[in-house]
């Protein structure tokens, strides 16, 4: 059970489900996330089981490791797995020049699943999510509307994607996805930050 003092960026949003299972949208809140920057030369990659192939991910020891760049990976684990993961990584990385940064709250994860997930996401991204091109387990950093995000193909029986997005952009992206899903029955969502009232000092 997560700490009740804790609030995720999309805590104010309820999961959305379109009729007939066309698409579902929910936040996977509080996942532990760390960015590791280290040179893949040497033993580190092997020891840490880093996926060194571009755009791929690996599961290892209960965490998912995503390739973000040639010297950059993201480790994701359950909310309570962060401390352990950090400690373990730190152990391995002892004398190596690296950077391990907790970004658990810098980002959150939006999960979109269902038959229409592909069609909805293609309204937002120039990246090719076609199952023939973006295979299960693959990862890509790209644009979703006007925000950058990381997408992972987590499909099992049904299309399912995670989008990792910055805290401050999460609500925008949530609402934009919902907007794109309206034709399949997702309800419209009004983004936070509607500004009402005075907008200008001298107008007062």
């Amino acid at each position: 059970m997560s700490d009740p003092r804790r609030k995720s960026p999309l805590a104010h949003r309820k999961a959305l489900n379109a009729p007939d299972g066309a698409v579902s949208l929910r936040e996977r809140a509080f996942l532990a996330k760390f960015i590791l920057r280290v040179s893949a030369d040497g033993e580190v990659a092997e020891v840490l089981k880093l996926p060194v192939m571009a755009n791929t991910s690996l599961k290892h020891n209960g965490s998912t490791i995503l390739w973000l760049g040639p010297d950059e990976w993201m480790f994701m684990a359950a909310a309570d797995g962060g401390g352990e993961m950090k400690a373990r990584l730190g152990e391995f990385l002892g004398g190596v020049h690296h950077q391990l940064t907790d970004v658990s709250d810098h980002y959150t994860v939006i999960e979109i699943s269902g038959r229409k997930a592909y069609e909805i996401l293609m309204k937002l991204t120039p990246f090719d999510l076609h199952p023939g091109a973006f295979k299960i387990g693959h990862v890509a950093g790209t644009m979703f509307g006007k925000t950058a995000g990381l997408i992972i193909n987590r499909s099992v029986d049904m299309p399912e994607f995670d989008i990792i997005v910055r805290w401050s952009m999460a609500d925008y992206l949530w609402c934009l996805i919902a907007e794109a899903g309206r034709e399949f029955g997702l309800p419209a969502q009004e983004p936070v930050g509607q500004v009402r009232g005075l907008r200008y000092r001298e107008a007062s």
Binding site: Q194, V195, R196, G197, L198, R199, Y200, A203
Partner: peptide
């Protein structure tokens, strides 16, 4: 005033 970029 509620426009995304309101005209001041």
């Amino acid at each position: 005033p509620s426009a995304r970029y309101p005209v001041l």
